[in-house]
Amino acid sequence: MSHGTGCAACHLPFQKGRLQAHTFARPADNRCLSCHYGNYVGSDYHGRSEHDYHWEYRTPYAPTGYGPRPYGIEYRDLTPDIHQQRGLVCIACHQDSGHNAKPSVRCASCHDWRPGQPVPPVRTLKADGGLLVLTSRADGRVHPVPPLQHPAHREFGRTVACQVCHAQWGSNDSTTHLLLTHTEDFDPWEELTVQGSSEVESLLSHNLYSDDPERPAAMRDGLTGEVRPGVWLQGFTQRRFEQLLVRRDTDGVIKVFRPILDLRLSLVDADDNPLVDNLTGADNGLRPYTPHTTGPAGLFYRDRFQHLLER
């Protein structure tokens, strides 16, 4: 466990499963990452992209085995979001508590700000000489906030989402295969014991390598905490980050998408009989999202969405 529950999940420090202090504090990014790790929004802000689950891909290798894995499994160090590089922590924009709360500010709140308008509600922002300036919480450096100047913002500002041009990379795990198995034969999963779940990893490692009696094929329900028969195992057809998936959303705006609901569900009983095999959803599983990998748009930004303008 890398975090507590309730208020302690964000406001009390945990390390190696132990509470480090009883003093409540403003959440730092490591508290956010204790939940928002993996190939999702959160870890991408810090430039982290998970490796494949197979043990041959979980580099770098260390002389004593694999290195520490405080956030799921090993990850690639890609380019962090430019805002993270400038010292913005997660709660700079996500100030309200609760996962249903919308961000306090959006891209245009700061970058389309004009003198005379209220300063966006970011604690380290202030107006200075007709510009917004940001003081980094990381090192105290002061950064002028660049205003929108490129003519593309006027041309496409209402029809193309910011990250279509400015995202440097995005998480595309496709297809996600989920298997609920009641069998206790875990030998086929020996090379995939690390799946970002400490509970699954502990069960597989114990039953595959320990001389003690095997544990039953059961795990906790993530919503109720009740232990239920069966173990959820996971794998992917491929894990990629290089190419952004750009589509037109139902509201007409061109956005970045990810195949987060491109799922295949299967169920195997205790006798290894498949009761459900590769059940799919009603569509391709693509859903719009906002990659937190912001950077310069680049010279060929239109190439990402030009094909959608011609339709």
Rank of each mutant, 00 (worst) to 15 (best):
L279D: 03
H143W: 15
T193Y: 07
G235M: 12
R154C: 00
P229V: 13
D277Q: 09
A25D: 09
M219T: 10
A218F: 12
D77Q: 15
W232H: 02
F241T: 10
P120F: 11
T23F: 04
D112S: 14
V246Q: 04
L267N: 01
H46C: 05
G222Q: 12
R248C: 08
L180S: 05
W113I: 06
V256P: 10
A9Q: 08
P70M: 05
H182I: 02
T5M: 04
R58V: 10
D212Y: 10
C110S: 12
S197L: 05
G222K: 10
P63C: 04
P296I: 08
Q15I: 07
L275Y: 06
V194R: 03
P151F: 10
G116A: 11
Y289D: 10
E226N: 12
G129Y: 11
Y289S: 11
D271Q: 12
G4Y: 02
Y75G: 00
S109I: 04
E310N: 07
P259S: 07
P63F: 08
L131Q: 15
Y61H: 05
L309Y: 03
N100G: 14
L265E: 12
G225F: 09
P259R: 13
W113K: 11
G65M: 03
S202A: 15
T135P: 00
P144Y: 11
E155C: 03
T59C: 00
D112G: 00
G140S: 06
P288Y: 07
D221P: 08
A25N: 10
I260S: 04
L223S: 13
F236W: 15
I254D: 09
A282D: 13
S97C: 09
A138F: 01
L265R: 05
Y75W: 14
K126H: 15
L286A: 07
Q168S: 15
G4L: 04
Y66T: 13
Q168W: 08
E50D: 14
N284P: 02
R48C: 00
T250Q: 05
Q95C: 00
T159D: 14
